[in-house]
C-alpha cells in the first residue's frame, strides 16, 4: 500500500532557521492496516502526514503508493487516493459553504469537475443518509453554513468528507485534540467505526497514549524526525501507557517532559 524509504525533509535549508523535520523515515503500511503515531512536540508527525499528502516535496528518499512512486505528483493529484482530517476543525471544511456543498465537493474528490450542477437532488438524499449515521442531527441541516457548526460537528463532517469517496489511505492528524474530552471520545469512536467498517488503511497521529494503544493495529513512535519505536499488534495489546512511557525513556535516553503526552 504505502511504502516510504529513507524520507528526508529539511525546512529552510541553509538559513539560520534550518530545521530538519524528517531524518530518514522508513514506513510501510499494508492494505487495511491502521497505524497510530505518537511522539513529542516537533517530532515530525505532522510533517510526515503532510509529505505523504504532497503539501511539500521530499528532499531525499521515495514515497510509493501501491508500488507507484508518487514523489513528483502534486497535492491535488495525490488527493485522488488520500483522505485527510486536520487537527484544526476549521481546516477541513469551507466555512462559508453549506453542509451539502461541502459534501458535494468531497464526493468529487479524484473526479474531473465540469459545468454540471455542483450538487444534485440524488446526492442530497445520499448525504442525508450518510449524515444520519453520524447521529448529530446534521441530516436536517443540509443548507446550514458549516461555519455555524461546533468544532466536534465540523470534525465529524470532515471525517465523513474524507471517507465519502473511499480513500486508499486516510491521514488523521490529531483530529480530536482540539475538542473537549467528551466530544473527542465521540469523534475517536466514530473514526474507529468508519475505518473498521470500511476496512480503510489509515495513519493516525495522536497525543493521547491511551488512544494510540486502544485503536489501530500498530503503533509507531517518532522523535527528532525518525521512527524510534514500532509496536506490532501482538505487543501492543500487552502494552500499558506506563510501559509505553518507559519504552520512550529507554529509546531516547531522556524522560518524557511533555505535559500533553503525560496527561493524556
Amino acid at each position: 500500500m504505502l511504502r516510504m524509504k529513507n524520507v528526508h525533509k529539511t525546512f529552510h535549508p541553509g538559513s539560520v532557521n534550518e530545521k530538519c523535520a524528517l531524518a530518514g523515515v522508513d514506513l510501510t503500511l499494508k492494505p487495511g492496516e491502521f497505524i497510530t503515531v505518537i511522539g513529542g512536540n516537533g517530532a515530525g508527525k505532522s510533517t510526515l502526514l503532510n509529505i505523504i499528502a504532497g503539501v511539500y516535496p521530499v528532499d531525499r528518499g521515495t514515497i510509493a503508493l501501491d508500488g507507484v512512486i508518487i514523489n513528483e505528483s502534486r497535492e491535488h493529484v495525490r488527493a485522488k487516493y488520500i483522505g485527510r482530517v486536520f487537527q484544526d476543525p476549521m481546516m477541513g471544511t469551507a466555512a462559508s459553504m453549506t453542509i451539502e456543498e461541502n459534501l458535494a465537493l468531497a464526493l468529487r474528490r479524484g473526479r474531473r469537475r465540469g459545468l454540471r450542477w455542483g450538487v444534485t437532488k440524488k446526492e442530497r438524499d445520499y448525504f442525508r443518509g450518510q449524515l444520519a449515521q453520524l447521529e448529530l442531527g446534521l441530516e436536517n441541516r443540509l443548507k446550514s453554513k458549516v461555519g455555524l457548526l461546533s468544532g466536534g460537528q465540523r470534525q465529524a463532517l470532515t471525517l465523513l468528507m474524507a471517507t465519502l469517496v473511499r480513500p486508499k489511505l486516510l491521514l488523521l492528524d490529531e483530529h480530536a485534540a482540539a475538542l473537549d474530552p467528551k466530544t473527542a471520545v465521540k469523534v475517536m469512536e466514530l473514526t474507529d467505526r468508519i475505518i473498521r467498517t470500511q476496512g480503510l488503511t489509515a495513519l493516525m497521529v495522536t497525543h493521547n497514549m491511551r488512544d494510540a494503544l486502544k485503536y489501530g493495529n500498530r503503533t509507531v513512535m517518532m522523535q527528532d524526525g525518525k521512527i524510534i519505536l514500532n509496536l506490532p499488534e501482538e505487543k501492543k495489546k500487552k502494552t500499558s501507557v506506563d510501559d509505553l512511557l518507559k519504552m520512550f525513556e529507554e529509546v531516547t535516553g531522556n524522560t518524557v517532559n511533555n505535559d500533553r503526552m503525560l496527561l493524556a
Binding site: 491535488h76 488527493a79 485527510r84 481546516m91 471544511t93 469551507a94 468529487r108 473526479r111 468528507m161
Partner: peptide
C-alpha cells in the same frame, strides 16, 4: 488547503 486535499 482543504480544497487541495479534495483534489482541486
Amino acid at each position: 488547503q482543504m480544497i487541495r486535499s479534495l483534489g482541486v
